[in-house]
Measured scan of single mutants.
Amino acid sequence: LVRYRTISKIPQITLNFVDLKGDPFLASPTSDREIIAPKIKERTHNVTEKVTQVLSLGADVLPEYKLQAPRIHRWTILHYSPFKAVWDWLILLLVIYTAVFTPYSAAFLLKETEEGPPATECGYACQPLAVVDLIVDIMFIVDILINFRTTYVNANEEVVSHPGRIAVHYFKGWFLIDMVAAIPFDLLIFGSGSEELIGLLKTARLLRLVRVARKLDRYSEYGAAVLFLLMCTFALIAHWLACIWYAIGNMEQPHMDSRIGWLHNLGDQIGKPYNSSGLGGPSIKDKYVTALYFTFSSLTSVGFGNVSPNTNSEKIFSICVMLIGSLMYASIFGNVSAIIQRLYSGTARYHTQMLRVREFIRFHQIPNPLRQRLEEYFQHAWSYTNGIDMNAVLKGFPECLQADICLHLNRSLLQHCKPFRGATKGCLRALAMKFKTTHAPPGDTLVHAGDLLTALYFISRGSIEILRGDVVVAILGKNDIFGEPLNLYARPGKSNGDVRALTYCDLHKIHR
């Protein structure tokens, strides 16, 4: 019993810090008490220290592992850092350059016999395009090294910054494609005289377009951006097909006994025919423009016929181009109408809503002055909100995010209106959640004399007048207030005048 009563005193000691020596009952000389009392004092002292730490809000209350900052290894790049964003855009520009100039170089340097010394005699450094290609190869190699040090988000939505895990993730992902696209074939085969082989191998750079397509997928929600990307894709495919079309004609031209190829026909049409040795002929500019003209006309199913396939190889390629053109029509131009419709969806919704308003007016036989006010209010409210119901949009977000959005939407009023000066951010967040926005066209009466005042109004834009009878008592403008002081009276009061809008007004109100 003594032991039980001794232990039962522990909660009292913990909360009230009572010393055991003052209790005459606990001072009985028993061996059990002498053993338990020192333990009680020690526990009391420890609990006292913990309570003191909690009340003082000291940093040592938290466990040590929670006080440590997340460790980022040296030379690790955050995937959302500004440097990584700028670097990704730079790589994107280099990939676009590669997609345009690599097929052009591979096709127009394929057994090209233009006048001038061969590239091997001039030297590697004197070729501007080769120098640019070398810079692109170096940048792609540097990009691989950067990807080995860039964080990523795993399946659990955690940012991984450990170098080993980053390397394994990159090896399992895009490393092989990036490595093949970054191989400097110019340096590996330079001086061997195989410019045709170098041009063909350099087309491996186009593998990076797969990554670019995935990154550009984030802009699919913007109709104008999608339309622009589709047109660029169409032009890029036409450019690639033009390079292939020229390569076919250029390879067949020296081996044909009869002059029936499209390059021969082009030379005869523009007065620059090929001679018996295969030299001469149109310039590279004429060849490229004509090839691009043929691919565009074939892809769009126009086909004027002034550039036509004559050999079997050219006919087979033309059939493939027609098939590609039909697929592009289905996948690209078939979506253009939907994209344009999405661009004008706001206008369509406006006309639909206006039609419903006019049908309501016609069905209920609203008189002319009231009908005009109804239409003007709808037009003004639509121009202010673009038909978007803010309350319906915010309803799907958590309250903390709703408060931040409301604070942002009402920031101008909260910053410049005098009653809100000096208020804490928590108070402003709470008030912003209570605001209701209303609009009024010129001549609209917001409050009639004798109406119950259940709200306090803040003028965000425009001006109003307060009338008693036919006498203008006051004219209020931006950041002015009218209405009933909230919670100042037990019952809502009545208006002693009319409140009429002089201009288009936007008002925020808080109800009782």
Rank of each mutant, 00 (worst) to 15 (best):
Y329V: 09
N310F: 01
I237M: 13
L413W: 04
K285G: 04
I361W: 03
G116A: 13
D143I: 01
W382M: 07
V212A: 06
E196F: 05
K395R: 13
V180N: 01
I366H: 01
S277T: 08
M390V: 05
A125T: 12
L206D: 01
L206F: 01
S308K: 01
T311G: 01
E158T: 10
G267C: 04
S105E: 04
N250Q: 13
G267K: 01
G305I: 01
Q372G: 10
Q269M: 04
T424S: 11
I198L: 13
S326K: 04
A348Q: 13
N156R: 09
G261H: 01
I270C: 01
S301A: 13
L209Q: 01
T445D: 03
N306L: 01
S298T: 14
G281L: 01
R373D: 03
L227T: 04
F378I: 08
V393R: 02
A440G: 03
L67V: 05
L209P: 03
M139G: 04
N250A: 14
N250G: 03
T76F: 04
L428H: 04
Q379G: 07
A224N: 05
H239A: 01
T98C: 07
T347H: 15
S301N: 04
P128A: 11
D186Q: 10
E252L: 01
F140Q: 01
I340F: 08
P103C: 01
G280V: 01
I339W: 04
G116N: 03
A225D: 01
T295F: 01
G346Q: 11
V142N: 01
P103L: 01
Q402R: 05
P442K: 09
P442I: 04
W87E: 01
P118I: 05
F83H: 15
Y246G: 01
V289P: 01
S220R: 05
N386S: 05
D286S: 01
L201R: 01
N410K: 03
V336S: 03
F234A: 03
R358G: 03
L67Y: 04
R362T: 03
N391V: 10
S383M: 10
C126V: 01
M139Y: 03
V210H: 11
I248R: 01
Q379I: 15
N306S: 01
L201G: 01
Y293V: 01
Q127M: 12
M139F: 14
L428E: 03
T290A: 01
F171Y: 04
I138Y: 04
D268T: 11
L187E: 11
N250K: 14
Q372I: 06
R71V: 14
G199A: 11
M433P: 04
H408A: 01
R371Q: 11
I138K: 01
E195C: 15
P369K: 04
S81R: 10
R214H: 08
